[in-house]
């Protein structure tokens, strides 16, 4: 899939929560084809401590408005600077990068999308892609508390949504892997993105239940295009680039002790 360097124009920025920003951007030309699970490398200007680009997942593509969305959690200087962008500003991005989550051929597959924290970001576009492919996804989304659960209304438009929060302020209290839906319903496939401990717990559940499971890794990156070999994950085939062969991996390829 062809990659581009694009100067996108910010159409809107919203703060669903003090630690998150949702950037919507457009371009003069139609945005390139992008797959769910792929990411972009965003150039951060005006932050002296931010030298490299920042990898951010594709949160959503709104084809009608020719917009790409990025949902960003502010963790350091780079993401804080991105949150300062204003409508009309330009943002230089390299995209689309990486592989994608699998969209099953069989429409009857029961697919569960598990997102934790800002790891819910790629699940929205994955959910939309599944719906477009005739598959009704189920979402299981977890966060610290109710206010950290983002874009829930949009998820609900796509499929059934189940929630967990650590403080019990929304959905069931606890972690995603403790949600009752996992024992009440059967799934054929799980796609997950979120903090590594969460993904490992999900992967363990999937393995023990014999469910196909894909996870999205967030190894630190430099080039984002498979040129520098900085972002490698050790797998059954040795070191592979997360930016190029990932970020999405079937858990059977990984050496995770689960």
């Amino acid at each position: 899939m062809k990659k581009y360097v694009l100067d996108l124009k910010v159409t809107s920025t919203t703060r669903p929560h003090e630690r998150y920003v949702l950037l919507k951007l457009t371009h003069e030309n139609p945005l390139p084809e992008m797959l769910p699970g792929q990411f972009a490398e965003l150039k951060v200007d005006g932050s002296p401590s931010t030298f490299l680009r920042r990898p951010i997942s594709i949160n959503y593509i709104d084809r009608e408005r020719n917009e790409v969305w990025f949902l960003i959690q502010m963790v350091g200087d780079g993401t804080r600077k991105l949150a300062e962008l204003k409508p009309g500003d330009r943002l230089n991005v390299v995209m689309p990068l990486g592989n994608s989550f699998t969209v099953p051929e069989v429409k009857s597959e029961r697919v569960l999308l598990v997102g934790g924290g800002v790891g819910t970001a790629p699940m929205l576009y994955l959910g939309k892609t599944l719906v477009d492919a005739g598959i009704k996804p189920t979402f299981l989304l977890g966060a610290r508390s109710a206010k950290d659960l983002l874009e829930i209304d949009l998820f609900q438009e796509l499929g059934d949504v189940y929630l967990t929060t650590e403080d019990g302020s929304a959905g069931e209290q606890g972690f995603v892997t403790q949600h009752s839906i996992l024992t009440q319903q059967k799934f054929d496939r799980i796609a997950t993105c979120g903090p590594k401990p969460m993904m490992m717990a999900v992967a363990k559940f999937a393995r023990n239940s014999g469910i196909t499971c894909e996870v999205s890794l967030e190894n630190t990156m430099a080039c984002g295009v498979g040129a520098c070999l900085c972002c490698v994950e050790n797998t059954k085939e040795g070191h592979v680039c997360v930016c190029k062969e990932g970020p999405v991996f079937n858990i059977d390829r990984l050496l995770w002790q689960i």
């Binding site: 002296p48 520098c228 070999l229 050790n234």
Partner: peptide
Amino acid sequence: GNPYPRMVETASGMLNCVGLQ
């Protein structure tokens, strides 16, 4: 090559220890 982590961003640059993979 060397195990991950192999890269860290620094002031105006980066350190790598890819190790000739």
